[in-house]
Every structure is written in C-alpha cells, then in structure tokens.
C-alpha cells in the first residue's frame, strides 16, 4: 500500500512536469520570433530618434560597452550610440548616448532609472536631457561644478543630474580615441 502510493506520486509528478515542459516548448516556439522582433524594433526606434536619417546599423563592442554605429542611406557614417550605465541616487541609470562624428553629443536618452519620483526622476525628461545636445566633452559638467560646465542641474536632484553628466562623459571618453582616429593614433 505504501509503496503503491509512493509510485503513484512519482508517476503523476513525472507526467505533470513532462506535459508542462512540452507545452512551454510549444509556446516558446511560437513566441520567440515575436520577442526577438519586438526587441529589434524597440532598439531601431531608439536609434531612429537619435539619428532620424540613419538607415543602417552595426553593433560592435568597445571596451565593456555595447556600441551601435549608424550609417545613412549612402553608407556614410553618421555617428555612434553608446549604451552606458551609471550609479545615480536610487540605483543604476541606463543611458543611451548618441555621438556624432565630430565627438559632439547628438542626443541623450534615459532608458531605465530608479530615481525619486518628482525629484530625481525629472532627469529623464526632455527638458533636462535637451541641454546635452551639441555639447563637447569639456562642457559636460554642471554649472556649479569645477571645471564649470554648461548643464543646469535639476534643483533638489544634484546627485541624479551629476550622475547623468558623468555617464555621458564616460561614454564620450570611451569613443574619443576612435572618433579622432587620425590624431590619436599618432599620439600613441
């Protein structure tokens, strides 16, 4: 009696897990191409927002960070988009930094953050991020910082504002040698 019950338990557990596994593999087979498609579309939309004239993209890895190189229709390089993260006030902030071929900021976007709602979270808004457009590396500091930069911090959220500026600087630093390829190679 005891062994019979035990065997029944094992059998039912095996049947249930096998069925579940089979079912999930079927669902996954249907869903996975769509999931890939969604991921690709999402990324494409972000790249389009930064480089509206971009047509072709190429993913490379520079140092630790994923970088997307964007070309226009004729195959001329427009610039690069760096994905970077930086520690803010409430955790990590994920940034997308678009840089043109002259090493100037094209556009900065915040992908994900955990800053205080109503205060630090305002760094993710367009009005703050718009200040970064067209800035160069040495201008990417807050106005109150030394060296003095061109960015107005959001009042009450200096830490979050400084974190974004730092993240953008790091992304630009990473690209700097490849951007000024001619001169920097000579320096080395």
């Amino acid at each position: 009696m005891k062994t019979k019950e035990r065997v029944a338990g094992v059998v039912i557990l095996v049947v249930v897990t096998l069925t579940a596994g089979f079912l999930l593999s079927q669902v996954y087979a249907v869903a996975s191409p769509r999931i890939e498609e969604q991921k690709r579309k999402e990324k494409e939309n972000l790249c389009q927002e930064i480089f509206p004239e971009g047509k072709k993209m190429e993913d490379v890895q520079v140092g630790q960070l994923p970088v997307t190189i964007v070309y226009d229709q004729a195959g001329v390089k427009l610039g690069q988009i760096v994905q970077n993260r930086v520690t803010g006030y409430g955790g990590e902030i994920f940034l997308l930094v678009g840089v043109d071929t002259e090493g100037k900021i094209r556009k900065v976007k915040v992908l994900q953050h955990n800053e205080t709602p109503g205060l630090g979270a305002r760094v993710a808004q367009g009005s703050f991020l718009k200040q970064f457009d067209q800035l160069t590396l040495e201008q990417l500091y807050l106005k109150t910082e030394r060296p003095e930069g061109k960015i107005d911090a959001i009042s009450g959220a200096t830490i979050s504002s400084r974190a974004i500026a730092e993240g953008v600087r790091k992304a630009l630093n990473l690209l700097a040698p490849t951007e000024k390829s001619g001169s920097s190679e000579k320096d080395l």
């Binding site: 019950e5 035990r6 029944a8 338990g9 039912i12 557990l13 869903a31 996975s32 999931i35 969604q38």
Partner: peptide, 30 residues
C-alpha cells in the same frame, strides 16, 4: 494527485502558466 506530491504539482502548474504569461507579454506588450 496524491497529497504527498501536491505542492510540487501545484508549483509546476502555476509556473507553467506564469511562463506562458511572461512570453506572451514579452511578445506583444514588452
């Protein structure tokens, strides 16, 4: 389902439905 194995069976069934939901949302409402 014998009562000795009911909890693992419940968890497997629930986890299956959660994973289906997870895939569906990833595919349609990322």
């Amino acid at each position: 389902v014998p009562s000795q194995v009911r909890i693992p069976v419940f968890i497997v069934v629930i986890a299956t439905f959660v994973t289906i939901t997870d895939y569906t949302l990833a595919a349609f409402l990322p």
